[in-house]
């Protein structure tokens, strides 16, 4: 379970203060997938980074399984698996060695690490490249490795920032299938994306974020009914046009 309550975040530059998030609130229960949708620069990544303890909110709070991300960050980190499209694995270590490294960092026993690795390698189809240096892997293989690394400690909550960004259709399917399975296991999944059909298929609850403000938040059905539309994409474009973000549509 993850609860976001009124978080705001500002970034100061030399010339001005940029408000990345303004009083954003939502929640996602166990066994559900929450999708945060918005254009580039809307504040999706900032929100996810706050949830993952990488940033502190200026105001408001985030609770992961009841633990505050600022006051109890260590407890939160035990329970989250975080993946971002910016997070690129590099170097000459193999996926196997990276999984060992992150497993050790998360203080997992050797026996447990061995069985988790085996499960992840099998599930993500990493058998052919698990011993090859990461530098020599394709984008899809690297993404699978990143997923494996972020899940090595079997987290209860998964926070994925644009998990299918840059992936081909087959690799994207592996990721989305994986997220669905995770949901079936009763875990909480938070994703950000700007691929609307993907969000529509995958998410139970969708939040639409524009310029740091969470404009809409609800189930697909609720949103379709409210805007008399039959796709999230149409709702998204209607809201974007309302805010003057799209001209001549």
């Amino acid at each position: 379970m993850i609860e976001v309550s009124g978080i705001s975040k500002k970034f100061k530059t030399k010339k001005k203060v940029v408000s990345a998030l303004e009083d954003v609130s939502f929640s996602c229960e166990d066994g559900k997938i929450f999708g945060l949708l918005g254009p580039n620069g809307a504040g999706k990544t900032t929100a996810l980074r706050i949830m993952a303890t990488l940033l502190k909110p200026d105001s408001g709070s985030v609770k992961v399984s009841g633990y505050d991300t600022v006051k109890q960050s260590t407890e939160v980190r035990k329970r989250i698996g975080f993946l971002t499209s910016d997070m690129k694995l590099s170097g000459n270590l193999s996926p196997d060695e990276l999984m060992n490294f992150f497993g050790e960092l998360n203080h997992i026993s050797k026996e447990q690490l061995g069985s988790t690795k085996e499960q992840l390698v099998h599930y993500l189809g990493m058998g052919d490249f698990v011993s090859k240096p990461v530098e020599k892997l394709s984008t899809g293989m690297k993404q699978k490795t990143s997923i494996a690394v972020s899940l090595i400690h079997n987290p209860q909550v998964i926070i994925f920032d644009e998990p299918t960004n840059g992936l081909d259709i087959i690799s994207s399917k592996v990721v989305t299938d994986f997220l669905k399975d995770f949901k079936k296991q009763g875990k909480t999944v938070i994703i950000s994306t700007h691929i609307m059909p993907e969000a529509e298929k995958l998410c139970d609850t969708i939040g639409l974020i524009f310029e740091g403000h969470l404009i809409e938040c609800g189930t697909k059905e609720e949103l379709f009914k409210k805007y008399s539309q039959d796709s999230i994409e149409d709702i998204f474009f209607a809201l974007a046009e309302e805010r003057g973000l799209i001209k001549n549509v």
């Binding site: 980074r49 993952a52 303890t53 990488l54 260590t74 980190r77 035990k78 989250i80 975080f82 971002t84 910016d86 997070m87 690129k88 694995l89 590099s90 170097g91 992150f102 960092l105 998360n106 203080h107 990143s146 690394v149 972020s150 400690h153």
Partner: peptide, 14 residues
């Protein structure tokens, strides 16, 4: 810059 530091910071390590 390579994005590897975030992977490290979200783990249970101070």
């Amino acid at each position: 810059e390579r994005g590897g530091l975030a992977a490290l910071l979200v783990n249970q390590v101070s």
